[in-house]
Design a protein around this nucleic acid. Structure first.
Length: 513
RNA sequence: GGCCCGUUCGUCUAGGGGUUAGGACGCAGGAUUUUCAUUCCUGAAACACGGGUUCGAUUCCCGUACGGGCUGCCA
């Protein structure tokens, strides 16, 4: 394949949905795989739905993902501008061309009139009204009106739209790289609006004009676009561009984790899971969301997870770096059926990525997490924490929630363990253990362990009698890394103080019971 | 309602006319581990249904069912 040029074309109406991120990913992978060009185009033709912060959000999200566009707003490229609002005059020109060639027509019907017709049809039992070849001759447009009447309306600055005149009795074939041939009967197709009354194009016109102008070779987009692709083919034909029409690939949808339908932003807040790459602060709490990044996901894991939602390499490899995804990616391996969003799988990927990281690389990330709780520590200390904890976390914030005792005093003690393991009559023994720790000059994990072993031998105790007590004293929980490693890291004085305090707490607990 | 797309373990999927239908997540059990996690082993778990075609269909065709998408001067 030569000159592969693909575009990711989001609409700046809010935060970029994770499904959009996957579309961007597949476009990016396809472009890079074929040494092609990845283009970002902002489809801001709907002035009523435009959201100020959305474009910068999209760009930041792509940046986080590592999908740097080769061309796009703020980047440049020889096919710009890359914001459709800045290409407005182009669309009007092409719409006019279609009018002149008889492939499109003026329609003066107002939205209110059309709504009224829809209502009336509904009342008569017709499920939907379609503005199509069957009815266009009866409506308020340049098909029915005389040339003079049309001119008069135009001269009077009456609002109009331009509609595509869909030909009758044709079979429109869409060749889809994922689904094969998809056929549509043109009589089923409505006369889509191309140019809106505000002078802006609809998606249908803008996307064809721009894909043509930007020499797009492949359109990779969500399956929700498949039905309107017939119109797009008709448009290419109307313009005489069918020979350079891009190839289409319609991606399966990402479905809700539970229940029916495609994943929506509501599912995020409802289930407490991220469905956006980055956090989004909307005007209301309802419209604000926590992103994958802020949940503590690694971007590599997110990419890997998303890549596998609808695609697979055909091998049994599961973990793919970005370069490996590029290498392995192919449209042939994209599935046809919708993929359910599996949050457990996403977390598993994240855990894999954290475990695979260098302890050193984890240091700044852990520092960021604990600093949110007002703590800091040396690089060496954090590196040790990374080594001890990375196999025990799934999301970055777990470095705090599961390991806060490395950074501050124990706040909660696992009562079940106290009940089972603390024998108040052994208090003198354990006091003695702390005394032995105090004697240690070399408070290393090995020395601590040796001390404990001697202590156990002296009093005929087992690991099970001593270690849980140490764990509770040091961390409040029985879960965690090697207790000797934890003790050595936290340090003699702190540990000894914690132990003494814990003895009192455990005694008290037993007194209360 | 109409049009379009889809349907392999609960989930993501491999496979494809003759296979013990493979892997991963999750789940259950076990081993290792001072605990937890990791790691390893084992297990339960799937070709939606009905007709064809065929010596033989999970695989090809047609229906049905179910699911999804579209049906806006939204994208």
């Amino acid at each position: 394949m030569e000159n592969i040029r693909v575009r990711f074309a989001p609409s700046p109406t809010g935060a970029l949905h994770i499904g959009g991120v996957r579309t961007a990913l597949y476009n990016y992978l396809f472009a890079k795989k074929h040494k092609g060009t990845f283009i970002l185009r902002i489809e801001d033709t709907d002035q009523t739905r435009y959201v100020e912060q959305a474009e910068s959000y999209i760009i930041e999200a792509l940046e986080w993902c590592g999908f740097t566009p080769d061309e796009g707003p703020g980047i440049g490229g020889k096919y710009g501008p890359y914001r459709q609002s800045e290409r407005k005059s182009l669309y009007a020109k092409y719409a006019q061309q279609l009018i002149d060639s008889g492939k499109a027509y003026y329609a003066f019907d107002t939205p209110e009139e059309l709504d009224a017709i829809r209502e009336a049809e509904k009342a008569k039992g017709n499920h939907t009204f379609k503005y199509d070849s069957k009815v266009r001759a009866t409506l308020n447009n340049s098909i029915r009106l005389s040339a003079d009447e049309v001119q008069a309306k135009l001269d009077a600055d009456e609002a109009y739209t331009i509609r595509l005149m869909v030909p009758q009795d044709e079979i429109v074939v869409v060749h889809d790289l994922i689904r094969g041939e998809v056929k549509f009967q043109s009589n089923e197709l409505d006369d889509k609006i191309l140019l809106k009354a505000d002078g802006m194009p609809t998606y249908h016109l803008a996307n064809i004009v721009d894909d043509y102008a930007m020499k797009i070779s492949h359109v990779i987009r969500g399956e929700e676009w498949l039905p309107s692709t017939a119109h797009h083919v008709l448009l290419y034909r109307a313009f005489g561009w069918e020979d350079v029409m891009p190839k289409f690939a319609h991606l399966p949808l990402i479905l809700k984790p539970t229940g029916k339908g495609k994943l929506s932003k509501r599912d995020g807040s409802k289930l407490g899971i991220p469905v956006f790459p980055l956090s989004w602060n909307g005007a209301t709490a309802e419209d604000s969301f926590v992103g994958f990044r802020e949940f503590g996901f690694d971007i590599g894991a997110v990419r890997n997870f998303l890549a596998f939602l609808g695609w697979n390499p055909g091998t049994e490899q599961e973990i793919f770096k970005l370069e490996e995804l590029v290498e392995a990616f192919s449209i042939e391996n994209i599935g046809k059926s919708g993929a359910r969003f599996d949050y457990d799988k996403a977390k598993w990927f994240n855990q894999q990525y954290i475990m695979a990281k260098d302890n050193k690389a984890l240091v700044p990330e852990i520092r960021q997490i604990i600093s949110a709780h007002g703590h800091d520590a040396s690089d060496e200390f954090l590196e040790s924490v990374a080594g001890m904890m990375k196999e025990r976390v799934t999301l970055m914030p777990d470095f705090w929630t599961n390991a806060s005792y490395f950074f501050e005093e124990v706040k909660e003690y696992d009562q079940k363990t106290i009940r089972k393991k603390w024998k108040p009559e052994r208090r003198p023994l354990f006091d003695n253990l702390v005394e032995r720790f105090e004697q240690l000059e070399d408070y290393s994990a090995d020395q601590v362990k040796a001390t404990v072993e001697t202590f156990m031998a002296d009093h005929e105790l087992k690991f099970g009698d001593v270690l849980p007590i140490l764990r509770i004293g040091v961390s409040g929980t029985t879960k965690g890394p090697s207790v000797f490693d934890m003790m050595a890291l936290i340090g003699k004085e702190t540990v000894n103080n914690r132990m003494k305090k814990a003895y009192d707490i455990m005694d008290n607990y037993h007194n209360e019971v």
